[in-house]
């Protein structure tokens, strides 16, 4: 009961923030709304008892990605807010499409009976995650390091100020 109320409040908060992100005209405000959305999703993860993911969500999305976005906004900002209109000409089609997509998904999801279990989350979940990184999922684990390396090199190449 309490959990359901908390869930509904968090859901309203998260969706409101997400709407603010896509609607707000000022880019910095959009970024702050995005931070709010990420925080709401992190609380949802806590409700799902995925505490490691909840803190990772805050660390990576709020601490890193949102900061990166704000920095990029500041770097390219002089053109930003003066451009006419936040949305393009097909925005109404996009809105209609999104609403339709949501209606279809919601209908579908409420019809499908998912086989759920009420098993509890084991205490050593984080240790299991860690041993799977270097066990079953060692290839994706190493590929992620390569991906991050490539992303870092590529982004430095792109963003660096060239002198002379």
């Amino acid at each position: 009961m309490v959990q359901q109320v908390v869930f509904i409040l968090i859901a309203i908060f998260t969706l409101g923030m997400a709407l603010g992100t896509v609607i707000s005209r000022k880019l910095f405000h959009a970024a702050l709304f995005l931070v709010g959305t990420f925080a709401g999703v992190a609380i949802l993860y806590v409700l799902l008892e995925a505490e490691f993911l909840a803190v990772s969500q805050v660390i990576v999305y709020i601490g890193a990605i949102a900061t990166l976005i704000v920095f990029a906004i500041m770097l390219s900002r002089s053109m930003m807010d003066k451009e006419s209109g936040a949305v393009n000409k097909q925005w109404w089609a996009a809105a209609g499409g999104s609403v339709l997509l949501f209606a279809a998904l919601a209908l579908l999801l409420s019809k499908v009976p998912f086989a759920t279990t009420s098993a509890a989350v084991p205490d050593d979940t984080i240790a299991k995650i860690g041993s799977q990184f270097v066990g079953v999922y060692v290839i994706p684990f190493e590929v992620v390091s390569v991906l991050l390396l490539v992303a870092m090199i590529g982004a430095i190449m792109l963003a660096r100020e060239r002198h002379g």
Binding site: E51, F52, V55, V58, I59, I62, G63, A64, I126
Partner: peptide, 12 residues
């Protein structure tokens, strides 16, 4: 369970 990472998260 995630004490140390929690500290990092509030630092963010």
């Amino acid at each position: 369970n995630v004490g140390v990472l929690y500290l990092m998260a509030v630092g963010a």
